[in-house]
Design a protein around this nucleic acid. Sequence first.
DNA 1: GTTGAAAAGTGCTGCGA
DNA 2: TCGCAGCACTTTTCAAC
Lengths: 152, 152
Amino acid sequence: MNYEIDNLDRQILQLLMKDVTRAYTDIAKELGVSGGTIHVRMKKLNEMGVVKGAQLLVNPSAVGFDVCAFIGVYLEKGSEYKDAVEQMRQIPEIVELHYTTGSYSMFAKIICRDTKHLREVLNEKLQPIEGVQRTETLISLEESISRQITIQ
Amino acid sequence: MNYEIDNLDRQILQLLMKDVTRAYTDIAKELGVSGGTIHVRMKKLNEMGVVKGAQLLVNPSAVGFDVCAFIGVYLEKGSEYKDAVEQMRQIPEIVELHYTTGSYSMFAKIICRDTKHLREVLNEKLQPIEGVQRTETLISLEESISRQITIQ
DNA sequence: GTTGAAAAGTGCTGCGA
DNA sequence: TCGCAGCACTTTTCAAC
């Protein structure tokens, strides 16, 4: 199951990352291969875990989630990381969690309805987690860029 | 064009956020309405900008992008923000950029091939931008959680 | 591994309630 | 405004190269 991604794979991915609704036959035409080939490649990329499906892009503020924030978490000991992750997984407001270098032990991205909701999550859900010493909050006032990587 | 999102809309969004490949007719069955209704609602949500299409989920490390980092950027003056954003938009490695409260002026998420690539982006692309005083880098050693918000 | 066409399923549009 | 049915399109599959 180890397969090197070739240039055709990368081209397919790049085109689909730009517009995932595009038809395979259309992509096939642009790249000069048949629609079946695109299908076979995408199936392989899915099975390999290179592609993890697709995601609906929803504007959070349009559904009532107006506050985006980043939380730096200090743990008492780094070894408590695994337990803390499991507990943070139970907090649906956390959309990203990273184990990072630097002064923080962990770094989370969190999306809430409003500042009151954010305070509730911080005080009632995050801070009570065992091993969490303190947190630092960065509130995003504006998301100026949001896009995917360019793979070639 | 101002329309309140009702409960049916939220249910449709929640189901599609979990699995965007799911057929409208299938969702219709679960929610007890017709397939046409789902289509009308999704069309409305698209026109309203609540839904901004879909995105292919690619595992960055599988395509050779192994380093994910967060960069806190200090600007000399906050007023230089707009110009700086425009220049940072030209850096494809930056996938997210936020204007934040706290000690940083801006906060960026960046995805690179390796640490050498990261250093190049920092030294040759980011630091030379006018108004950028200094930067702080947090490297993500592991992304433990990555998901979407739960809207109800 | 790629191709081309056939088969199955889906999204989309118009009409009726 | 919502639900139903037909049409066009796409994905998927498969045998052959």
